[in-house]
Design a protein around this nucleic acid. Structure first.
Lengths: 339, 339
DNA sequence: GTGAAAGCGCTAACAC
DNA sequence: GTGTTAGCGCTTTCAC
C-alpha cells in the first residue's frame, strides 16, 4: 500500500526522540539549530510528508473547508468556486465541494455530512428549495464557522457576501425605461430566494421611480430556476398573449436567461425586443437573440467569502461583529441599448 | 467550539465499554440485540456522529478521492465532476477538487498535496502543459490508486476512460466532406495532449479515406487551448489569407470553439462556412455564428471514472488487468449540415 | 534543549 | 457477548 514514513522512522534513524523530530519539522524555537538542520535535511531526503489525518485528529483542525452550491456545472458557481479555491490554495486549505442540486433534502444531508467530515468551516449558497433553516442553525449554534454567499439568509448572524441585487436590477430597469420601454416583464427565480426578492424589489422600485406602476401580470416566477424549460416557455407565452404585451424583458438568473432566449428563438414571429438578463456565461456575447446582461463578480465573491470564513476560523476569539458585503455587478449592453 | 460527543461519552452514560459501543454502531454481529438497540437509540437521541478523522487514522482510509482537472469553470469538466460526485455520494466518498489551470507546476504541487492529504485515490485529467509524468508515476508506484479520464497518458498502466476522439473527429470530417467541403481547416489544442493527437489523427484519416490529402497549412495548434484569444484570432486570420482558403472548420475543443466563433463574428466580411467544434457548453444551441458540435458524454465519463477508481480502491487484492474505456460522442448538426 | 508520556477518537486483537 | 488494551501518527505538556 501507500508508503508511510513517519516521525518515528526519522527519530529512529537519527537516534533522537519523536518529539524532537516533531519540533524540528514544525520549526519550533526550542531546538538547536544543529539538530533542526540535520532532521530537516534527512526528512527532505527521504521525502517525508506529515500525515494530515493524524495532525487533524490531534489538533482538531482539518484544514479543509466545505463548499455548498446548487450546481457545479453552472458558470456563476464554478467561477465562485474558482475564487474560493484561489484563496484556499494560498492559505493551505482544501475545499470539499458538495452540490444541493437545489434540493432541500440533499442540502440537509450533504451539510450534515460535510460537518461530520470535520471541515473547519462552511461556505454556503442556499438551495432554492430551502425555506426551513434549522439544519444550518444547528450547525451554527454548535460553533461551526459559516459564511453565506450569493443566496444568503437573514436568520443567521454571520459574514455574508452577495451582489447588490437591488441596485443591479434597479439600474437595468432604469436603463430600459430611459430607452423608452414601458411594459417591462420580469422573470424571476424561486420566489423565496434572497436574490429573487432583492431583484424584484429593484425592478419595482425602478419602475416607481420612473412613475410607472408595476403590473403583477408582467411578473413571472419560475421555481425551478430554468431547469424546467416548460415552466419558462409557458411564462413567455403567457406574457406575449397579454394585452399589455411586454416591450422588454428583465430576467433574474443565468439558467433562466438561457431558457428565455431559447423560448424566444422558437417564436419566429416575435419581433426582437430588448432583453436584460443576469448571466455569468462566458459565451453570452455569442448568444442570439442578443442579450444585454448583468454580470456578477463571481470569482471575487468566492475570494471574499473564503477570506471571511478563514477570518472566523483562524480567529483566536469568537467574533461578534459581522459584515454583509455587497458587490457591484456590471451591466453589459448590446443592440438597441447600446446607443 | 464544535461539539464532540464521543464513543467514550456514550459508553460512560450507558455503563458499557467503548468497544461495545463501537460494535453496536458499526452493526457488528458479535453483540446482543438488546444492547445494540439501547446504544443505537441513545446515540440517535444525542445526535452522535462518528469522527471520520479518527476513523481514517485508525483504518488508513479517508473515504475521500481527489479530482484533478484543468478548470472547474469549464462546462466539460464541471459536467464530469457532476458525474463523479453522483457516484462518490452514493458510495459515501467525498471529493476533493483541485485545478491545475493547465499549469505543470500547479499540477505537480496539487497532486502532491492531494496525495499527502490522504485521499484514497486520484481521478486525473492531465494539464495541457504537462509532458513529464514522473510526479504521477511516483504516486502510482507508491500504490496510490489512479484513474485517468479525458486527457489520458499511456505510460501508466491503470484504468482510463476517454471519448473515442479518433472516431468523433473522423465522423465529423467525413460529414463535411460528404457535404462537399474540400479545404477543411483544423484548429487543435496543445499538441502533446492525447485528445489533440487522436482528434488530429481522425481528421487526417477521414480526409485520406475520402482521397483528400491533408494540407499542413490548414492545421493550426493553439497551445493555450483558447485561453489566449489572440492565438486563435491569428490562426483564423492566417487560415483565411491562404490561397486554399478553408471552406469549413473543425475545432478540437470547447474553449477553442468559443474563441473561434468570436473571431469569426468579428470578421463581418466573411461568408458563413460550416463549423464543427467540440463543445459541451449548455448554450451552444444559442450561439451565433451557428456551430455544429460534438458533445462528449461528460457526466457519464465522470461516473465511469469514479466507478473504476472505487473498484481499485475497494479491491481486496492488487489489480493487474486494466481497461481503457472509450465513449462515443454525439454529433449535433445545424445549418447547412442539417440537410 | 531534549525525551518520556499522555492522548486526540476510534477499532480490533485478545482475553475472559 | 463484553471488556481490556494497544495503537494509528502526531503534538504537547511535563520533567530533567
Amino acid at each position: 500500500m501507500f508508503k508511510a514514513v513517519t516521525i518515528k522512522d526519522i527519530a529512529q534513524a537519527l537516534s533522537v526522540s519523536p518529539s524532537t523530530v516533531s519540533r524540528a519539522l514544525r520549526n519550533s524555537y526550542e531546538i538547536s539549530d544543529e539538530k533542526k538542520k540535520m532532521i530537516l535535511e534527512y526528512a527532505a531526503k527521504i521525502n517525508y510528508h506529515s500525515n494530515p489525518i493524524a495532525v487533524s485528529l490531534r489538533n482538531k483542525r482539518s484544514n479543509s473547508i466545505g463548499v455548498m452550491v446548487a450546481e457545479v456545472a453552472n458558470s456563476f458557481f464554478s467561477q465562485t468556486i474558482n475564487g474560493i479555491e484561489s484563496i484556499a490554495y494560498e492559505k493551505g486549505y482544501n475545499i470539499i465541494i458538495s452540490q444541493s442540486h437545489d434540493s432541500y433534502d440533499r442540502e440537509v444531508i450533504n451539510l450534515e455530512h460535510l460537518a461530520s467530515r470535520s471541515v473547519d468551516g462552511l461556505l454556503i449558497s442556499m438551495s432554492s428549495q430551502t425555506t426551513d433553516y434549522q439544519h444550518i442553525e444547528r450547525l451554527h449554534n454548535q460553533g461551526l464557522p459559516i459564511v453565506f454567499f450569493d443566496r444568503i439568509i437573514n436568520s443567521i448572524d454571520t459574514y455574508k457576501v452577495t451582489t447588490d441585487n437591488f441596485k443591479s436590477a434597479f439600474d437595468a430597469i432604469d436603463l430600459l425605461v430611459n430607452k423608452g420601454m414601458k411594459n417591462i416583464a420580469h422573470i424571476g427565480n424561486a420566489p423565496q430566494l434572497s436574490i429573487t426578492i432583492e431583484r424584484l424589489r429593484g425592478y419595482k422600485e425602478a419602475l416607481k421611480y420612473n412613475k410607472i406602476t408595476p403590473e403583477e401580470n408582467l411578473i413571472k416566477f419560475c421555481p425551478s430556476g430554468g431547469k424546467d424549460s416548460g415552466e419558462v416557455d409557458s411564462a413567455i407565452k403567457e406574457l406575449f398573449s397579454l394585452s399589455n404585451k411586454p416591450d422588454a424583458i428583465f430576467i433574474s438568473s443565468d439558467l433562466l436567461s438561457n431558457a428565455c432566449l431559447r423560448a424566444l428563438k422558437n417564436m419566429p414571429l416575435h419581433k426582437q425586443i430588448p432583453i436584460i438578463g443576469f448571466s455569468n456565461s462566458d459565451v453570452v456575447d455569442l448568444m442570439m437573440p442578443e442579450i444585454s446582461y448583468v454580470r456578477q463578480r463571481a470569482f471575487e465573491m468566492g475570494q471574499i467569502a473564503a477570506n471571511m470564513l478563514l477570518k472566523i476560523i483562524e480567529s483566536k476569539y469568537p467574533l461578534h461583529e459581522f459584515e454583509t458585503k455587497m458587490l457591484d455587478a456590471e451591466l453589459y449592453r448590446t443592440g438597441i441599448l447600446l446607443k
